[in-house]
């Protein structure tokens, strides 16, 4: 296992470097410069600023100087915010996003698994159809619609929850539900399909033929095997949540990273674009590694294929 993880870490570093390079050159293709919008600047000032941030150098030179700084963990300074450190800005913004993302994924997974399992066990019943209707709605209704409805009913009409802003647990409830809706829907659908698939397997008949109770058959033999494909979708889902909360963050006025990311692209704030992209990539790579490790824990066949333990 150790050797397997070691090998994976090496390939992760390579992946990361490739992403950093690609992003860097793609970003340079963006039209305009970071200072175009500032009409107040004189030509001399723009020349001076370009000089100061090294934007006059050939792209290759800029690239190597960026990568050199990256190796020592220096993400540079923002062009837009008085030269503040990119890492500081990400650090400030990541808190609410991560909190929301984590809370939604935990809630969404638990509810989704539960619904999926129930639907499969009560296959073709009212409960099954009801769950699948919820799942289809959860996927097809954009989460900002859910967010808006909640704000109106729970926030404005009934005054149960704060409408927006970021000031304690009560403020996280509505955004969490809005984000979790897609997780619930996705996982419930997958889990139902996988459960039905596993329930039809021969080894389930074997388990029944041993005289196990249906609860024991489901808990010991079905759920574990049905969870393997769920873990696969969990990886991308986690990352999508971390990044995809952008709209929700704006609706609920939450000072998160997603909002910052989009702003930086619109203003050509290169260091912030690079910084956030690399941050998200790193997150993604790490989540994928965690998923693979979890695979190995749940499915012994993969553990062995990865390397002798």
């Amino acid at each position: 296992m150790g050797r397997y993880i070691g090998g994976r870490v090496v390939s992760m570093v390579i992946t990361f470097l490739i992403i950093a390079s690609l992003t860097f050159f793609l970003m340079k293709l963006l039209p305009g410069t970071p200072f175009n919008n500032q009409e107040k600047l004189t030509d001399t000032q723009i020349v001076q600023l370009n000089e100061k941030y090294g934007l006059n150098d050939p792209v290759a030179v800029q690239y190597f100087s960026y990568m050199k700084n990256l190796f020592v963990g220096d993400l540079g300074v923002s062009f837009q915010q008085d030269g503040r450190e990119v890492s500081t800005i990400i650090g400030e913004r990541i808190g609410p996003s991560a909190y929301l993302g984590f809370q939604s994924i935990v809630l969404g997974t638990i509810v989704g698994l539960f619904l999926g399992i129930i639907a499969a066990l009560r296959h073709n019943s009212f409960l099954d159809y009801g769950t699948m209707v919820i799942a289809v709605l959860g996927i097809s209704i954009p989460n900002f619609v859910i967010a808006g409805l909640m704000q109106y009913w729970l926030g404005v009409k009934w005054e149960l929850l704060p409408v927006a802003y970021w000031d304690g647990f009560a403020y996280t409830i509505m955004p969490t539900i809005a984000i979790a809706s897609i997780v619930v829907a996705t996982i419930a659908r997958f889990m139902r399909t996988e459960m039905l698939e596993v329930l039809g397997q021969d080894y389930i008949t074997t388990a029944k033929a041993k005289g196990l109770s249906s609860t024991a058959v489901v808990i010991r033999h079905t759920i574990r095997n049905a969870s393997i494909p769920i873990i696969t979708i969990m990886g991308p889902l986690v990352v999508a949540l971390m990044t995809g909360t952008l709209v929700i963050e704006q609706i609920f006025v939450i000072p998160g990273l997603g909002e910052k990311f989009v702003n930086s692209i619109m203003t050509n704030d290169f260091p912030i674009i690079m910084g956030t992209t690399l941050f998200y990539s790193l997150l993604f790579i790490v989540v994928i590694l965690l998923v693979d490790i979890m695979y190995g824990i749940i499915d012994p066949r993969i553990r062995l294929a990865g390397g002798k333990d």
Binding site: Q201, D202, Y203, T205, T206, A207, R220, H221, R224, N225, I228, I298, D299, P300, R301
Partner: peptide, 10 residues
Amino acid sequence: DPMTSLNPTM
């Protein structure tokens, strides 16, 4: 079929 009648994760 012994290939499918045993639980692969147990």
